[in-house]
Design a protein around this nucleic acid. Sequence first.
DNA 1: CGTTCATCCTGAGAGC
DNA 2: TGCTCTCAGGATGAAC
Length: 286
Amino acid sequence: MPELPEVEVVRLGLQAHVAGRTIREAEVLHPRAIRRHALGAEDFTQRLAGTRVEAARRRGKYLWLELSDKEALLAHLGMSGQMLVQPEGAPDEKHLRVRLRFDDDGPELRFVDQRTFGGLALDDLNEVLLPDTIAHIARDPMDPEFDLDAAVRALRSRRTEVKRALLDQTLVSGIGNIYADEALWRARLHWSRPTGKLTLAKGRELLSAASDVMNAALGAGGTSFDALYVNVNGQSGYFDRSLDAYGQESMPCHRCGTAIRREPFMNRSSFSCPRCQPRPRPNSGR
DNA sequence: CGTTCATCCTGAGAGC
DNA sequence: TGCTCTCAGGATGAAC
């Protein structure tokens, strides 16, 4: 389940193994994987052939290969997407969706995605070299120009529950269900707390916690829960052993020992400590 | 405009 | 053993 740290690991791998190489041909094995490319598979492959990859970039959970001529190959890994660098001739993966071959006859780049929530598309780069279709995505906490106080203001201006706001990629990007639960645990906040009632200090604490936990995950090579997430070299991460809240139902809280609870949240789950992160009282404050 | 919610997909695991 | 059911999620666009 790639969130920012996992995507960054993939970006680093792409920068190391793909940047500077020229694409010889692209092959689309499943049309759904390029559904965001409005002009279709033929246009996709024609435009990629002969193009040089200048660099691998990322914002939040989006990843792109910067190409010559102000174009980008934009990628989102979705739930189960992988970028694999494989020798030519290696057997096709079961869920291989797109293959790029290079004119140096070196290893191929393969986009493999079991659930096909992710995908690739060609996009134009705007004046600040950002793909047009992700102009609405906010800077993430690892962006050198990330403005913590501006992000806190954006969160607090919402009239919703704090976890919904954390997951809104137009406010702060890169945070998914896992790191949202971890950040809330660190900041001792229940997911349903109204954003409007967060103090400035608590907002800063929350986003700092999100930044810290994602940096820690990046240091460990990303989180992995099953074989679905593999980095560009095919190696899984191992940060999951360090999680404090996500997936820890009925395990003792690492701060107070109370059993972690699991609650339904937006058709999925939210994990929290009942003692450290008490549910807000219906009519408190205001 | 702001906010919420169903939808896409496949395989693992549980329950019978 | 083999079937059915539930769950896991991010981003989008429709609905309120």
